[in-house]
């Protein structure tokens, strides 16, 4: 664990937590503009959250504490993962050797809680969504580990603090090709993990086609607000991870580095919007193919590093 934490790192984390609801908004806005519509305002996410927080909750008689704990665990686990990212390019608030595994573990914990809370309702729709979510995750998680393995090999640091922090700047000129491959794989992972097109369509509300949306059908009021905030935060977290890999921030000043991350996250959201307006959703059986393709890219990156 860390001896002392730089408070500026915590400010960066707070900033990411604050801008998270706007990030899906940027993606949606980009998609709307590119397809010739005006679209919802970028800040619509905040309004939705404010509205939901004021509402009451409704719990089904058959659901248990697992259902109520789900949304809280989702957000808590994502915040935990976010604390491990060195957003200011120097040090993460929480770091130790091997925290790459803890990062993936925190993400898995959040997914596990969400899936359980979906299953707890006993609804067959939510069970189906949970099954799809876990199917996709079982392909996505090994790819995440492959990406981390490549980053660890490229930088020689077993902690995200080093692997996507100060050391990444030195690794770029040396291993450009591998890091580009890892960045591509991470972008595909971002689309898959956050249920964006081409894996899932966040705009659809038809139960049969949804993956992520269908799990949270029974959540209401503040619970739903937490779930929505959690999914926005997850998108922001993956975008921030991608930005941390692509933009070496060690040379930037302590204040400009988090701002650069925020700007980078916004750019990633625009990219997501561009992908969404250019592609159709893949058939569910084709999704693993896409994710394994990303895995092949990451694996190739590792092979290049081992050479």
């Amino acid at each position: 664990m860390t001896g002392h934490t730089d408070w500026r790192a915590l400010v960066a984390v707070a900033m990411v937590l604050l801008i998270a609801p706007a990030i899906p908004g940027i993606a949606t806005k980009t998609k709307s503009v590119l397809t010739g519509r005006r679209g919802a305002p970028v800040l619509q996410g905040y309004r939705d959250l404010a509205k939901l927080v004021r509402k009451g909750r409704v719990y089904s008689d058959v659901s248990t504490w697992v259902f109520r704990a789900g949304p809280v665990v989702v957000v808590a686990s994502l915040v935990l993962a976010l604390l491990m990212l060195p957003l200011d390019g120097r040090s993460a608030p929480l770091h130790f050797a091997g925290d790459v595994v803890a990062f993936a573990g925190a993400l898995a914990l959040g997914r596990f809680a969400l899936v359980l809370s979906g299953l707890d309702t006993g609804s067959s729709f939510e069970g189906m969504g949970a099954s799809r979510e876990v199917t996709i995750a079982s392909f996505a998680e090994p790819v995440l580990f492959l990406c981390f393995a490549a980053l660890v090999l490229a930088t020689g640091h077993l902690s995200l603090n080093g692997a996507v922090g100060p050391a990444i700047g030195a690794a770029w000129p040396r291993d450009t090709a591998s890091l580009v491959l890892v960045a591509l794989a991470l972008f595909v992972l971002l689309l898959a993990e956050n249920a964006r097109v081409p894996v899932d369509d966040p705009a659809t509300h038809l139960e049969l086609t949804m993956v992520h949306e269908v799990i949270v059908l029974d959540h209401s009021g503040p619970d739903l607000a937490l779930v929505l905030y959690g999914s926005a935060l997850k998108l922001t977290l993956f975008a921030a991870l991608l930005v941390c890999v692509v933009v070496p921030r060690a040379a930037l000043r302590a204040w400009t580095a988090p701002v650069a991350v925020a700007a980078g996250v916004a750019v990633v959201a625009v990219l997501v919007g561009v992908v969404e307006s250019a592609m159709a959703r893949l058939r569910l059986t084709r999704v693993p193919q896409l994710i394994v393709g990303a895995g092949a890219l990451a694996l190739f990156g590792i092979i290049l590093l081992l050479r």
Binding site: Q289, V292, G293, G295, A296, L299, F300, I303, L304, L306
Partner: peptide, 17 residues
């Protein structure tokens, strides 16, 4: 299948190197 052939392909690249 596509997944199996992608993995075979990755194995081929590894073997090549």
């Amino acid at each position: 299948g596509y997944i199996a052939s992608l993995l075979l392909g990755a194995a081929a690249v590894a073997a090549g190197f």
